[in-house]
Design a protein around this nucleic acid. Structure first.
Lengths: 129, 129
DNA sequence: CTATGTGCAAACTATTTGCCGTCTG
DNA sequence: CAGACGGCAAATAGTTTGCACATAG
């Protein structure tokens, strides 16, 4: 666990946003001005393999990262790309799981279900109208 | 509506897979050997704006396209990237909508809800074990 | 005829990688 | 000290764009 890796983890955990590698690069650089973007990419992958952070399986051309590894879903704005958390009540998590299992079991086996809701966020929707 | 645009649309509609631009480029080139990849990209965007096809808001580094514009969701294999359709019964579409509206209304306004389930598909799951 | 589209190649963006010197355990 | 890691710059993958010519309406 190098200084670089530690600080990347620390900064990611502080954020409620779901930053891209380069968002995080900008933040981490304030504390480690010489760090390289490649190091940020490498460490994010490693931290995710270690189970300390989560690589989001989310639409959009840039990958996003989440310091909160508890079970939750995401809402993603198709216009500005902002990603917000959706925490379900436990009972609803179960409901949702069994809901989709009805459709899925025959075709595919799955380990994990990710639900991504997308649409226009409040801000973008307001600008639009 | 040029020959190129017409053939791209025609070929996309034939497919149940959810091809990337370059998948489609390979297919279309059999009929139009001189077509360029840029033309495929340009026309896919245009056809989506026209509402004739759908640009999938789906994870993964490559964009995917769907010739079926009816309401349905997708399952995406995190290993091989394959995307399969999930068609819900009408009653279930409604259930799901209201289910998530409970969580979403306060935070965001949305036009459209896309649900993407991801996990391991049957094939990848079999290889894994 | 003229606005729109095409082919081609170059540009761009996000990400990955090779190399070589540096640090950690 | 050995193996893992970091900085840098070059390579790669997917996508977009500028330009000059071609085509649809």
């Amino acid at each position: 666990m190098t200084k670089q890796r530690e600080i990347i983890l620390e900064e990611l955990r502080k954020l409620k946003t779901h930053p891209t590698a380069s968002d995080l690069y900008d933040i981490v650089r304030k504390r480690l001005p010489k760090i390289s973007l490649g190091t940020v990419y490498r460490n994010l992958e490693i931290l995710a393999e270690m189970g300390l952070i989560k690589k989001l399986e989310i639409a959009g051309k840039e990958k996003r990262w989440d310091g909160d590894i508890s079970k939750h879903y995401h809402f993603r704005c198709v216009k500005c790309g902002k990603v917000e958390d959706i925490f379900l009540k436990d009972e609803d998590l179960e409901k949702l799981d069994s809901f989709f299992k009805n459709y899925i079991n025959d075709n595919v086996k799955f380990e994990e279900m990710n639900v991504e809701i997308s649409g226009l966020c409040k801000d973008c929707n307001t600008i639009n109208n």
